[in-house]
Amino acid sequence: MIYWCLFFLTVLKAVLFSTGGFGPLPSLHTDFLANGWATEKQFAEAIAIGQIAPGPNGLWVVSLTNLSGGLIGAILGAIALILPPFFILLVRKFYARVRYAPSTQGVLDGMVLVVSTFSIVVLANIFFNRSPDVILLLIAVISAALAATKRVSVNLILLVSAVAGALLLH
């Protein structure tokens, strides 16, 4: 019981203090590894599965909580993911008054810089801790280059990468 409570509150905290699909990643990565609930490998798998599945970006959290806590974990993860955005109903009430305040813009920009930096650092951590070979490095670089052009669909990039991995990696 205590485990599930802690599990739920840990996911809830990560979602509550972040924004965007990958926002909870740094916090979850720290807490799940520290508690022994997930491995680096499971993080990589959950993120990959979450990207392949339909729906908003953050559903990789459901995959992660499923891989680490089974069906109960997945349900708790989904609830923790759904609750914080309801905060928008409160924000809506005073948004008009604060939207152009320098402090609001400062908080937003500061948070975006921190979350974006985090996300890159954590994903790089997971990627390089698994000792990637030349093929994986090439896949990462080519995917980044193709995404930067905006001409190739992200789904196609992921699909071709997965097929290339299945055929070329040993």
């Binding site: 993120i47 979350v115 896949i139 990462a140 990468s161 991995g165 990696l169």
Partner: peptide, 23 residues
Amino acid sequence: QNALKAAFASIFGISIITNWRNI
């Protein structure tokens, strides 16, 4: 496993661009 490893490598590359666009 190899397909998923490669998919993650791709996501890592794409995420650098996504986060750069945010910053």
